[in-house]
Amino acid sequence: MDKSNHAHIAKAYNEYYGNGLYANRYPKANPNVTDRVLTHTAPLTETSNVLDYGCGNGRYLQQVLEHTLARTIGFDVSEVAIQQAKNQLQPYHFRVSLFSSRNTLNRALLHTSKVDVALLLFGVLAHIEGKENRREVLSWLFEHLKSGYGHLLVSVPNRLRRFWWLQLKVYFLRSPKTKEGICYERGGDSQKISLYYHLYTCKELIEELEDVGFVIRRVSAESFFPEKWVIRYSWLARLDWMLCEILPAWIGYGILVEARRPL
């Protein structure tokens, strides 16, 4: 990944996690996505590996650790998020390894077996600026997955549902810095954090995955309603799950793709 983009993401998310805005906005995992994650990880054994690339404070790793016997690996560029994940997952410390450096992660993976299931969730891929940088991450994950079995679950924001006003602004201003994405802000006036997003269509995400060798197994909506609503209201989460099961992925608030590394 481009170092300047990497540093910007790390700085932004250190602030996002450090001031409590992230935990307040997303206090737990999306039930629909958790269901899909556990579908793939529940059969795993104590010799299996699950990698969460962009694990944040560990909300999906915690679900895997609570419901499976698998060993887990978490990576995030935010050192603050990794420290929060360490605190959150301390009861499972013997089955979890956490990293904020890709170089350190690479060295650790040299001494372990290939990954059975990799997670690239909640727009992590979309925060990476530049198609070649996103391709590098997808290729890296492809190489570390088990041939013929290893699965990747990736979710991204849907261009048809997200940030229409910013998309129009970028289109009419034709800003070179955001020509393939948008920049948006989180937090109040005194805590504004600027984040980059590449908004996807289903077709584009599938093409990027197939381009590095993945076989697409399932395409669905990550959620139909905004995630901050879904994780706060259990009745809405149940409705959201039903809608994600019956509606086409392109209607979703986010897009969730389940892919496999072939033999």
Rank of each mutant, 00 (worst) to 15 (best):
M1Y: 10
D2S: 00
D2Y: 00
A7G: 01
H8I: 09
H8K: 14
A10M: 05
K11I: 01
Y13S: 00
E15S: 08
L21G: 00
Y26M: 12
Y26F: 15
P27G: 08
K28I: 04
A29S: 11
V33R: 06
V33Q: 12
V37I: 14
L38R: 10
L38Y: 04
T39P: 00
A42P: 02
T45V: 09
T45H: 13
V50I: 10
V50N: 09
L51V: 07
Y53M: 15
G58D: 15
Y60W: 05
L61N: 10
L61H: 12
E66Y: 05
T72A: 15
G74R: 12
D76T: 09
V77M: 02
V80T: 15
V80N: 10
I82M: 08
K86L: 02
K86P: 05
L89D: 00
Q90V: 03
V96Y: 01
S97L: 03
S101K: 05
R102T: 13
L105R: 07
R107I: 05
A108G: 04
L109I: 08
L109Q: 13
L110Q: 15
T112M: 13
T112L: 11
K114Q: 15
V115W: 01
D116A: 11
V117T: 07
A118D: 11
L119A: 03
L121W: 07
L121E: 06
G123P: 12
L125C: 02
K131L: 12
E136L: 12
V137E: 15
L138E: 11
F142V: 09
F142Q: 07
E143N: 13
E143P: 00
K146W: 01
S147D: 14
Y149L: 13
Y149A: 13
H151L: 05
L152I: 11
L153F: 00
V154K: 06
P157N: 07
F163A: 06
W164K: 10
W165Q: 11
W165I: 08
L168F: 01
Y171C: 03
S175A: 04
K177V: 03
K179Y: 03
E180P: 02
G181Y: 09
I182T: 01
Y184E: 00
R186C: 06
G187C: 06
G188I: 01
Q191N: 14
Q191Y: 01
Y196E: 02
Y197V: 00
Y197E: 09
L199F: 04
C202G: 00
K203W: 06
K203P: 01
L209E: 04
D211A: 07
V212Q: 09
G213S: 03
V215I: 14
I216W: 13
I216Q: 04
R217Y: 05
E222P: 02
F224C: 07
P226M: 04
E227C: 14
I231R: 05
I231L: 05
W235F: 08
A237P: 02
L239F: 06
L239A: 09
L243E: 03
C244I: 02
L247W: 04
L247M: 10
A249C: 12
G252V: 11
G252F: 08
E258D: 14
A259E: 07
R260G: 02
R260A: 11
R261F: 06
P262R: 09
P262Q: 11
L263N: 12
